[in-house]
Amino acid sequence: MSDHIVSAYSDELDKLSSDIMRMGGIVETMIADSCRALATNDPVLAKEVIARDPQVDMIEAEVEKQIVSLIARRQPMGHDLRMILSALKTSNELERIGDLSKNIAKRALRLDDFVSAEMRNAILRMSRPVARQLNEVLDAYASSNSVLAKNVWSSDDDIDQHYNAVFREMVTYLIEDPRRISAGAHMLFIAKNLERIGDHCTNIAEFVYYQAVGEYLSTMDRPKLDQV
C-alpha cells in the first residue's frame, strides 16, 4: 500500500506494527522457553521466562498509548482504522499469552520429583503446535495475510485434540501413581494454559483477518470439536 501524504502518520503506524511484532517475538520465546524449562527441569530458564513478562506488559502499555494518540490525532479511516483496532486487541491477546507462559514457568518451578519424564514430554509435545500456531499468526499479522490467518483460525481444533490427548494421558499417569497427584494437577493446568494460548492465537487470527479483509470471521463457521 502506498504511503500516506502525511509521512509521520505512516511512521507511527509502522512503529505500532513493529512494536506488536516485537511483543509477539518475546511472547513466542516465553512459550518455547517455559515448556523447555519444564521438559528439561531447568529452574534457571523458568525464572528467566518469568522475568521477561514485565517487558511484555510494558510494550502493551506503550502500544495502547500510541493507539490512543493515533485515534485522537489522525482520525484513522478504512484499512488504517482496522489495523489500529486489531493492533489494540492483538496486544491484549499477546499480553494474555505472556501471562499464561509466565504461569507455565511458575508451575514448572513448583513440580516435585514424582513427575515422570513421560509427563514432561507430553507437555513438550503439546507445546510445539501451539508455538507454531503463534508463529504462524504472527507471520500472518506481519504480512497482513488473510489466507494464512484463516488457516490458523480453522486449525485451532488440532490444539484442542492435543489437549484432549494430553488430558487423558495425564489421567492415566495419575491413576498409575497417586503420589503424582500434586504434580499432575499442575500439569493439567499447564496443558489448559497451552490450550488457552491456542484460543488467543485464534482471536489474533480473527483480528488479522478483519484488518486485511474488513469483514469478521464468524465463530459459528469454525469447525469445532466437543469441549471437555
Partner: peptide
C-alpha cells in the same frame, strides 16, 4: 465506505494516501 471501502482509490482517499 469508511471502514472497508471496496475500491483502492476510495481507500487511498479516505486514509490520506497518494
Amino acid at each position: 465506505i469508511f471502514t472497508n471501502p471496496r475500491e483502492k482509490r476510495t481507500e487511498d482517499y479516505i486514509t490520506g494516501r497518494y
